[in-house]
Amino acid sequence: MTEGTTAERTVTLAHLFPELLNLYADQGNVAVLRRRAQARGWTLRAVPVKLGSPMDFASADMVLLGGGSDREQQIVGRELAAYREDFAAAIEAGLPVLAVCGGYQLLGRYYELQSGERVAGLGLLDVATKADKGRLIGNIAIEWTSGEGAPDVRTIVGFENHAGRTYHDYAPLGRVLKGHGNNGRDHQEGLQYKGVVGTYIHGPLLPKNPHLADHLLARALAFKGCREPLCALDDALEWSAHHAVLEMLGVKS
């Protein structure tokens, strides 16, 4: 392989503030994307963007934004405001973004505390989150409402743990089969807009949902300008773990 092709077969993931937004083991999502890229002859270059260091959206093929504690999210919210314009433009251009839990909330306009005080989000999407009594905690299964390239398996499983109730008018990531989802009321979970996937589901999200991992990976490659199909992998273990959660929740797959 020439040097040129090696560079071409590198997909770059910007992992925002991993030192702060790592409450739900989001490095697990990176590990899954890395291995699955590697199995298709791609090198995943995960670039940790630390608090205070510059962020070059032009060089990223994908962005991962995890969740942190309230204190950590406030620090990040202040910091990210400086990147807002570039980030918004990149999202409009179709940059794939995976935002989990606190990261999902941060994409929105604000997080309203129970006191009524509003902690500003990035305002990249018209999403609002309000704190309420009692956390929404537990295993969750949803039916993925995937627009394009609908996979055979439509379920997504994982764990949710959030006090915030999130409201928006975008397409959800899916319909709640068991669990709480965005707000525990409208049976919707997460959000899909252009390349953005926002969700409360962790566990982490990707290990037990290889179809979603590949969907995101394919998106990142497409954003890079490469539309090759991803070959199938041996995911027997992943699907066993996926179905074990469905069974535990009493959801028929």
Partner: peptide, 13 residues
């Protein structure tokens, strides 16, 4: 702990 996310924070690699 009902959430098993922490398994991915173990430095098994």
């Amino acid at each position: 702990g009902r959430d098993v996310s922490w398994l991915w924070d173990i430095d098994l690699e």
